Amino acid sequence: MNRILAVIKPTDTDVELLEEAGAVAAGTGVEVIVLSLVSEGSEDASVDAIRQWDGFDATKTDETAETVNRFAEYLGSQILDPLGVEYLTVGERIETTRPSSKIIDVAENHGCDHVYVSNRGRSPTGKALFGDTTQSVILNFDGFVTVRTA
């Protein structure tokens, strides 16, 4: 294993996902890329959830991309620093409601061979109508994918 990509949002499930990725990274000595994305159309709700996250200081910026990146840095410092895991944060605002291609691009650009992503537990009908980011990552990423179900 070379590098792990952990895709996070401001949810307890994603904190647990980052803890799992951190434990694996600590045991194998690899770096973690912490990716926090906000999709166009859902950015207000996502940024509000980040700003309300317990312990996160949201007063330093109003810029969406900077807030998202600072959230990834915050979780990295809270979860990965105590484990002695090296990490890099990537926080971005993307102009699509289907972030799977961005997740795969970040993983490939950073040499990740393992992706940790959470599944929002959509129904089969929801997947058919709206697509499924997790399914797309599983099918299109050339590496291992670990899925944590919400």
Score class of each variant (00 low, 15 high):
19 E>V: 07
30 V>K: 05
52 Q>M: 15
75 L>S: 03
88 L>C: 12
10 P>C: 06
136 S>I: 06
122 R>Y: 14
27 G>W: 05
71 F>M: 03
19 E>Y: 07
114 H>C: 07
64 T>W: 03
103 I>S: 03
12 D>K: 11
13 T>V: 05
104 I>W: 04
28 T>E: 14
86 E>W: 04
42 S>L: 15
141 F>K: 02
135 Q>I: 14
124 P>A: 10
150 A>C: 14
109 N>C: 14
89 T>H: 00
79 I>A: 01
25 A>H: 03
92 E>H: 07
20 E>T: 12
80 L>W: 01
50 I>G: 00
24 V>H: 10
18 L>C: 04
44 D>H: 13
37 L>M: 10
122 R>D: 07
21 A>E: 01
147 V>W: 08
71 F>P: 00
80 L>I: 04
11 T>V: 10
131 G>M: 11
36 S>Y: 01
64 T>C: 09
24 V>S: 08
25 A>S: 06
55 G>L: 08
15 V>P: 03
49 A>K: 11
48 D>E: 15
80 L>K: 01
117 V>W: 02
8 I>G: 01
8 I>Q: 00
68 V>D: 01
49 A>N: 12
49 A>V: 06
89 T>Q: 00
135 Q>W: 13
30 V>Q: 07
25 A>T: 07
2 N>I: 09
144 F>G: 07
115 V>Q: 05
128 A>Q: 10
